[in-house]
Simulated assay, not measured.
Amino acid sequence: MSSTAKRFRAGIVGGTGYTGAELLRLLVNHPEVEIACITSRSEDGTAVADMFPSLRGHLDLKFTVPDVARLAECDVVFFATPHNVAMRMMPELMAAGVRVIDLSADFRLRDADVWAHWYGETHTAPDLLAQAVYGLPERNREQIRQAQLVACPGCYPTAIQLGFLPLLEDSLIDPNQLIANAASGVSGAGRQAKIPMLMAEASDNFSAYGASGHRHLPEIEQGLADIANDPVSLTFVPHLLPMIRGIHATLYAPLRDPTLSLKNIQALFEERYADEPFVDVMPAGSHPQTRYTKGANYCRIALHRPLDRDVIVVLSVIDNLVKGASGQAVQNMNIMLGLPERAGLEGAALLP
């Protein structure tokens, strides 16, 4: 092995969607990792660079049918698949000792019955739910380091949990009166033909959806309850923005102590995230925009207290495909493999 050879081999299951494409973009530039295989049953034999010409000159691989024996030769395997795919392959991969990062929802919830309720089918690997580590590094870094199976958080859950986390850890807010209004670009719906995501439908429009109950809600409440060490109640309303990338979450919570100043809350956030490489607490009074994180693995947060009333407002923005999916998956991989956490993720946000 030459001095320039990469140390670790990564496999990707299901690489034809947006999260798969984003994983490829990040991994081809990773200093310590090479992509060993990428799978797609429908695109078997197709050159990756033919499907994604942006990768011409960066990756010389073809899509192949998923094969556990070949995947088992990798140091880490990513699942960038729709829900219900990873859980069917996971028992065999786990038995082979493969370390896996699942970007789907298959292992985010610990209760198989709750999962079945929200995803409309029976979970096929319920025994593995307890083994999965929830891959929010800012909360579970040490568990991630030792994990064999990491369940990468969803995009909305990432932005919302990071926004509420310091407040719940210090019991500064009422956990039973949490509100999250969050809006996402159309790429959050995946790379498939859906009428609401067509340019003529989504452009010049703004709409809510899933207001009566969204499948990310149980994941968010589970994570927030873990942080608070107590049950929480969250009103979560997602919205669709007429843009491609980005999530903007506006979070509201009543303060337990109305005499607590915004200055003290700002200091709490700055201290809590001081050593976190991918969370940026902006100056008090800032209004972060989605373009501040476009293409980058950052969550940017700002705090407000309107009219000094007893409600704290947290603004939390991420790129749904990076910190909300593939970037966070690479961050988890770096932790699992003992690599510098920033490796392959140093890029600044794109502007414009």
Rank of each mutant, 00 (worst) to 15 (best):
A249I: 04
V314D: 02
Y156E: 04
R25P: 00
S104T: 06
P340Q: 10
A105L: 06
Q161I: 14
I247C: 10
I244L: 14
D308T: 05
R191I: 02
G14K: 11
L55Y: 04
A296C: 07
A112I: 10
V237I: 13
R300D: 02
L167F: 02
R272A: 14
A208S: 14
L251Q: 06
M282G: 01
P340G: 10
L167T: 03
I35T: 00
L350S: 14
A159Y: 03
R215D: 13
L167C: 08
P82Y: 03
L241G: 04
I220P: 03
L71C: 08
Q143G: 09
D257K: 10
Y134T: 06
L136W: 00
P231F: 00
Q222V: 02
E22D: 13
A211L: 15
M197Y: 05
L339G: 06
L240V: 08
A10Y: 03
L128A: 08
Y292M: 15
N229V: 11
L260G: 04
E142N: 12
Q331C: 13
G15K: 07
V232P: 01
V314C: 05
R139E: 14
A253L: 04
L337A: 08
T46W: 01
L321C: 01
V68D: 13
Y298G: 10
L103R: 03
A72G: 13
D106K: 04
